[in-house]
Design a protein around this nucleic acid. Structure first.
Length: 471
RNA sequence: GGCCCCAUCGUCUAGUGGCCUAGGACACCACCCUCUCAAGGUGGCGGCACGGGUUCGAAUCCCGUUGGGGCUGCCA
């Protein structure tokens, strides 16, 4: 009887949740779901002082957002690596007692000098047979045995590493604290992790960790190293250069299912001719063996396209609900007292096909909830550069004051006014649009006018007329 | 420098020796629709890095070259 698979996801608490991390979290989660296994969350930092509770909450919150819930039966954790320090040291001491590790008193500078002198970079195994015992400033190094380690990787196949190319790496620092490599393995053993699915950048660590598993008398886990996410320069995504925080995309109004779906198309593709697929189908179809081997560019434009599609697929009610957080301070800049939910509800279908992210919504409807629109000067200049524009706007003042106040009737009036100036509706609507909304682009005008009401519209037309008539 | 990984349109990918005259998606362009902008519809542009093999047959297998990336810490 074999135990159910246990997948571990081990982000480091850095204050934000990396999109690349989100993808590997998703891989682990999906695998756990498929196998009835467990998703084990471990917050990895050997130094407890760097484990800030709010960062852990941030990670938990971001995971929840993409559907990985700590209350789900498949979820286990969070565990804290730093809480297990005693076990890490204990394992190291065991390896020392068994002769699989040895102490070394060389400083980093001394190692570099020796490397320079010999022409071979890295640590040369100087203290291997010096029989040093533990002591302040002395590090414990793993005695890499002779031979070869083959890492069986579920996405890459077998990868062989000659031990001769792997230096005797550090297990315990000069101050006695364990390093990540060791802590990671000891925790994996303790938590009975059976599958390690992580980013490719860890592949060079895999043989070292596998040796550690074996030295500890354990059977190594199944490995899978998935390709890294890169920027346009094809460099690994970094916080400094790139927009990598999940929190930021969420704040901008990217919707979770779109983010999840997009992330899953990086390095993998569902069957069929469409990439937009429900999560259930991804869970059904995903296979580690079909994950791509090469790095993938995180394309924000395509993410936006996915998001727009998800937004459009919502019902009006769903869309209105999703917009909620963006319609109030601090995201919305209008006076909350002026916001009218019914008006927004009526506008919603009009804006739904016109935004890529929820973050664009306030700017699109803001003119509805203000005394006067924010005039975009470029729009004013462009529109009223035409000689007939001001005159047409002037005529509309009278028409609008008395005509029937319905979208189709308003449209007819503007159409007729345009004809008098030899302008088709496409051109003729521009002056009115700028007067009312402040810009040349926006939601359909006549529905908007109807919603806004005669009084407000007239006020805005008068205001702009005063200005352009004088010019 | 050493070790390792990778290589299909600009980008993400489908492709596991014949179904490939290489399919889809994003982006881009054109047209249609249209009150602006979108959305939608139709069409278009555009790729197997290169060179050798293996094979009746190669995007697919092998070798090499070139190019890219990762690792190379007493960070994780």
């Amino acid at each position: 009887m074999s135990a159910t698979p246990r997948y571990r996801f081990a982000p480091s608490p850095t204050g934000y949740f990396h999109v690349g991390g989100a993808r590997t979290a998703l891989y682990n989660w999906i695998l756990a779901l498929q196998t009835g296994g467990t998703f084990v969350l471990r917050i990895e930092d050997t130094d407890e002082s760097r484990n800030h509770p709010q960062w852990t909450e941030g990670i938990l919150d971001a995971l929840e957002w993409i559907g990985i819930s700590r209350t789900d039966p498949h979820f286990e954790g969070p565990y804290f690596q730093s809480a297990n320090a005693a076990a890490h040291v204990g394992a190291a001491e065991r390896l020392y007692a068994e002769g699989r590790a040895y102490y070394c008193d060389l400083t980093t500078e001394q190692i570099q000098e020796r490397a320079k002198a010999s022409g071979r970079p890295g640590y040369d195994g100087h203290s291997r047979d010096r029989g040093l015992g533990p002591g302040p400033g002395r590090v414990l190094r793993f005695r890499v045995p002779e031979g070869t380690t083959v890492v069986r990787d579920e996405v890459r196949g077998d990868v062989a590493f000659e031990h001769a190319t792997i230096e005797d790496f550090v297990l315990l620092r000069g101050n006695g604290s364990p390093v990540f490599l060791l802590a990671n393995v000891v925790d994996d053993v303790a938590q009975r992790i059976s599958h390690v699915v992580r980013a490719e950048e860890h592949l060079p660590n895999a043989p070292k960790q596998q040796m550690l598993w074996e030295a500890l008398g354990e059977r190594p886990p199944s490995w899978a190293h998935v390709p890294v996410l890169v920027n346009e320069a094809r460099k690994k995504l970094s916080k400094r250069r790139d927009k990598v925080a999940m929190e930021q995309y969420r704040e901008e109004g990217i919707v979770a299912p779109a983010m999840v779906n997009y992330l899953m198309t990086l390095g993998w593709a569902p069957g069929g001719d469409t990439e937009i697929v429900p999560f259930a189908r991804i869970v059904e179809e995903f296979r580690l063996g079909s994950v791509n081997h090469s790095s993938a560019f995180f394309d924000v434009t395509k993410l936006g396209a996915f998001n727009a599609e998800y937004l459009r697929a919502m019902s009006t009610d769903e869309f209105v609900a999703a917009c909620g957080p963006w319609l109030a301070p601090p995201r919305a800049t209008w006076d909350p007292a002026r916001f009218d939910a019914a008006t927004f509800r009526a506008m919603a279908p009009l804006v739904q096909t016109r935004v890529q992210s929820l973050g664009e919504v306030p700017a699109m409807v803001g003119f509805m909830f203000a005394d006067a629109p924010e005039l975009d000067e470029a729009s004013v200049t462009k529109t009223f550069g035409a000689p007939w524009a001001a005159a047409l706007l002037g005529e509309l003042r009278g028409t609008l004051a008395s005509c029937e106040w319905r979208a189709d009737a308003l449209k007819g009036e503007v159409e007729r006014a345009g004809e008098r100036h030899g302008q088709k509706l496409g051109k003729a609507q521009a002056p009115l649009r700028v007067a009312v909304t402040g810009r040349t682009v926006g939601p359909p005008l006549f529905e908007t006018l109807e919603l806004l009401g005669r009084e407000a519209v007239l006020r805005r037309v008068d205001a702009l007329w005063d200005r352009v008539a004088r010019a």
